[in-house]
């Protein structure tokens, strides 16, 4: 009986393996989950924590890339949204998890773009793995208690020319007004995060 169970388990494992995929970030951090405090170094080498950087009304972790053309297309919008909501208590924190982008590159890119928020270096993509982040740009909007309210795309048009839905801003406004966020996630095409070992 025990032997049969082992065999069955082995067959099941083989079946899962065969049908399994390879997205690098299978473990996802679902809406409603709470993110524990974390510490990462910024582009100046200073250790920063979520507790230190979080906003009074919420925090956006935005996964960025110096190389990704989609991020480049979004940079002005990201800067504008960050500026618009900073005064409303929502802080942005940039995260770069790309193993292919050096600290110098990320630092000079951040200066060139002119982000007014810190960009943290996710060495070994530990935070990306914890959240299940796999695309740039990709946002995680946390409330004041670090509970995930919204995850995914910023809006529905990467070119910025034909935006009809501002997913992130809609989530901000609902949260700030104390309303339910209707759309808590949205996917969009972007660049894959280049993880260590890819």
């Amino acid at each position: 009986m025990k032997r049969k169970s082992i065999l069955l388990a082995a067959l099941l494992a083989a079946f899962v393996f065969v049908l399994g995929g390879d997205v690098d970030a299978q473990q996802t951090f679902a809406v409603g989950a709470k993110l524990d405090n974390f510490k990462l170094k910024d582009t100046d080498g200073r250790e920063r924590s979520l507790d230190e950087l979080k906003g009074e009304k919420g925090t956006v972790l935005v996964f960025l890339s110096a190389q990704c053309p989609v991020v480049r297309g979004y940079n002005e919008r990201i800067k504008q949204i960050a500026a618009d909501y900073a005064g409303k208590g929502i802080n942005f924190v940039g995260i770069n998890s790309n193993a292919t982008e050096s600290l110098d590159w990320v630092k000079s890119n951040a200066a060139e773009i002119g982000y007014k928020f810190p960009v943290l270096i996710d060495t070994g993509n530990a935070l990306a793995d914890r959240l299940g982040a796999s695309v740039t740009p990709e946002v995680y909007f946390l409330d004041a208690q670090n509970v995930l309210l919204y995850h995914g795309a910023i809006d529905n048009d990467k070119t910025g020319r034909a935006i009809t839905t501002n997913y992130l801003k809609t989530a901000f406004d609902a949260s700030l007004d104390g309303r339910k966020i209707e759309k808590t996630s949205a996917l969009a095409f972007g660049c894959s995060i280049k993880r260590k070992g890819d």
Binding site: V23, S134, V135, E138, G152, A188, S192
Partner: peptide, 9 residues
């Protein structure tokens, strides 16, 4: 697939 978040390739 539900396991794809839109990253390319």
């Amino acid at each position: 697939t539900k396991d794809w978040q839109g990253g390319l390739p």
